[in-house]
Design a binder for these strands. Structure first.
Lengths: 226, 226
DNA sequence: ACCGAGATTGAACACGCGTTTACAATACTG
DNA sequence: CAGTATTGTAAACGCGTGTTCAATCTCGGT
């Protein structure tokens, strides 16, 4: 799988990017109103005026965050599509390993219903549906008379889970947005959605995910009539 | 099923309750910071000073909203438990019919991770797990080697769906928080979770929900070995 | 009729915010 | 090196905010 391509060490980032990243972390944690330009500037180690100089206004800063997150998600998703990794069972864990602040911000933007995030949701939904169709054709998941609705609900649920991640963390005693957390949770997700998989892919998954998945998936699963 | 018991016509409410309801609607829509006491007061048709007189401060107002929503949810949930309606397939539709502002606010509070909402989440999770155990004993859903995790993930997903409801609404062309929306979506939810149901309860559900559910559920479903 | 307590208000205050402006330092370019 | 754009800063301004306060209104109890 291709790397996201963006630098991760903060000393490699331009001042503008450092300001943006500081805002990216603060907005979802404190909300838009409670996030002050002065605080963002302090996080980035610059003066408040420089924030305005680079982004025009506080709203401009938020829009820049929106655009950056949306663009990064799009790129990551496209890369995944190109490499045909969408059907790799371990894909989710790797994909979610991308910087957690981005995920947190994305969930926040979706919950806020910002136009740019709306567009991304809709685009992701269209692609998700298309991918579901391909997976059906490949005999991996089961068809549905209303695949659009099923995919939409499933996507809303999985993204919603991201927004609720702190509650999962607290109750499961782990960081569910980390790579290890995703890996630990994947068998359970497969168990929950087991009714939608074909028996053959379920066998493959049991093989791929080891004992824990086999244990969880032995009792449940799809049942095709005929 | 018992009614929630709270009056719905605004002219029946005390001024204090009207202020609280105005805040209840504004906080999730505009966020805490962007919600001004003056705007809440205008919505309730009172002066800004009266808001402070009744709730002490803006934070006090938010806390009052938190308490009210959490308490209402608890009451509704207890009533449902008492009446043993938790296993009625049509329960969700009725339960969700309660005032939508409450649902919106609850989702917002959960996403914010407010302590009071945290407690309610944890309590709901504990009860959900207990209910799952009962449902397993009654042969309605399938057991799991890690029922706690499965229940937690399922709950986070379903609550997260509430937070994401606007995106579902936009893409499905309906109001998914209304009684009709819930009813329309329930067959799809059953389809998604079909792997967790026992065949017998799935048959019952097909019977209860009519042609659309039967259509959706005919292809998928659980498969118990032996 | 009187009183007192709670409900309600308009005006004002103090503070922190986003933003502006003028100015200094640095980096780039011919 | 001169000239110029870019990057950065300190200080101040104006505005909207949460909040306070004294004053008025409402109305049940005696």
């Amino acid at each position: 799988m291709r790397s996201a391509g963006s630098p991760h060490r903060s000393e490699d980032l331009t001042t503008k990017a450092r300001i943006r990243d500081a805002a990216l972390a603060r907005f979802p944690r404190h909300g838009f109103g409670a996030t002050t330009i002065r605080a963002v500037a302090a996080d980035a180690g610059v003066s408040p005026a420089l924030v305005v100089h680079h982004f025009g206004s506080k709203d401009g800063l938020r829009e820049a965050c929106d655009r950056h997150v949306v663009a990064t998600f799009r790129e990551t998703k496209l890369a995944a599509l190109e490499d045909d990794n969408m059907f790799n069972p371990g894909f989710a864990a790797e994909a979610y390993t991308m910087a957690q602040p981005l995920l947190r911000y994305f969930g926040w933007a979706l919950a806020r219903g910002h136009p740019a995030a709306n567009d991304l949701f809709d685009e992701m939904l269209r692609e998700s549906t298309e991918i579901s169709r391909i997976a059906i054709a490949r005999g991996m998941i089961l068809d549905s008379p209303d695949l659009e609705t099923r995919t939409a609900v499933q996507m809303a649920m999985q993204l919603g889970m991201t927004v609720m991640h702190s509650h999962l963390d607290r109750n499961l005693g782990m960081d569910t947005l980390s790579a290890e957390g995703i890996a630990a949770l994947t068998p359970t997700l497969l168990e929950i959605f087991s009714g939608l998989f074909t028996p053959s892919i379920l066998d493959q998954v049991k093989e791929a995910y080891g004992d824990r998945a086999r244990e969880l998936l032995d009792r449940v699963g799809p049942h095709i009539e005929s």
